[in-house]
Design a protein around this nucleic acid. Structure first.
Lengths: 206, 206
DNA sequence: ACATTTCTACTGACTGGTCGGTAGACTTTT
DNA sequence: AAAAGTCTACCGACCAGTCAGTAGAAATGT
């Protein structure tokens, strides 16, 4: 059954292309990356590259969907199994944030680079992203209903959290003072407890 | 003295070009905007456009610096005059955030589009941005020293806040449920008080 | 007063170069 | 021999940027 192994080879090579492309797109941006750049990095000619992919846009589209698949499988699906809303939110921050700052394949990061897509493909991506957004907002909504939440608008809070998470890969560098996990721990603490000590917010604590 | 009025005309035209460019760069991205696009929007030929500007990169650089000048003048300088750190932070969120979501000239938004600059110019911009970052971090540091802060890393908190603020223009749309000021009020509340009600964080409040 | 020169703001036509993408020959694997 | 994979060589479109030239207003000369 050599055909299967051959098919696997092609799949391997294709996946390698996606991974490398994701990495380079993330490093220097989609627009700023030419197909020749990509081909050179993969040690192949540009024409050879096109044996595996359909177009540059299709490549980006597939990478983004790869990232969204990852979010589905590794974040959304497990998160939905967590009953407790607070725990679920904690899980989402740790898991998604973790991938954003220490993930080897830079793929889920590109979820952001939607703007280079044609309107048709962009709409599809936006729809999937919305599902994720809704999950987080729903989680905050649950917390609110349980009276666990401060008097904050859940939509604003959700967008704020996304801003914080998606900003992470732009500043976090490995080998800094805080490890990835410590950083995410701080983010969680910040979102759950806020900046100010309740003692000075006019509340008495004992 | 007609010469002065003529000079003013040139300055007006140049400023008009910067404003339009800022708007279009913000709408469709710097890379995705060609100089012909820009010329068409300004109802001028591409060659005519180059009468006023030096290069595309120089145009972006000037726009970014215009935004940084705005930050200096309208945010940093007034903020430094505010003694109370908590009040200062509140001011920064309201002022910077306000410009990001309701500013007419889209200029300070482009502070983000640094990646298309050559290393030399990028370094200059990064340095100025760092001054702003340091101001916010210093403010949080003061709060910490005063014992007003929860046990959260100030660097992480600062980056998180920047993520939230710079993410605002990507989702906030005028005419939604919340006004710009209400939205910023929510962001302030969120950062100061966090998500969770202290009552359920194991603290007794009376 | 009129004629001449200078200058400002701009244009149409163009350049060198890069882009994404491809046709078809060639090599390797099965 | 057939199929799969990779190459060289190239295409048309578009990019940022340039250049010679100019209409008309302003400045200068007579």
């Amino acid at each position: 059954m050599k055909t299967i192994s051959a098919e696997e080879d092609v799949q391997d090579r294709t996946e390698e292309i996606y991974c490398k492309a994701a990495q380079i797109f993330h490093d220097q941006g989609y627009d700023a990356t030419s197909m020749s750049d990509l081909a050179k990095a993969l040690e192949i000619t540009k024409a050879g590259l096109y044996y595996y992919i359909e177009s540059k846009e299709d490549l980006l589209f597939r990478i983004i969907n790869f990232g969204l698949d990852w979010l589905d499988k590794e974040v959304m699906t497990p998160a939905k199994l967590i009953e407790d809303a607070e725990e679920r939110l904690r899980f989402i921050i740790q898991r998604h944030g973790g991938e954003l700052i220490k993930g080897v394949h830079a793929i889920p990061i590109l979820t952001d680079e939607t703007s280079s897509l044609s309107p048709k493909l962009r709409k599809q991506v936006e729809k999937r992203k919305r599902h994720y957004f809704d999950l987080v907002r729903k989680t905050l909504g649950e917390l609110k209903q349980q009276g666990k939440l401060m008097d904050v608008d859940v939509t604003v809070a959700t967008f704020s959290l996304f801003g914080t998470l998606l900003w992470l890969p732009r500043w976090y560098r490995r080998g800094g003072l805080l490890s990835a996990n410590q950083t995410l721990e701080q983010v969680t603490k910040l979102y759950f407890g806020g900046l100010l000590n309740p003692q000075v917010k006019g509340l008495r604590v004992r």
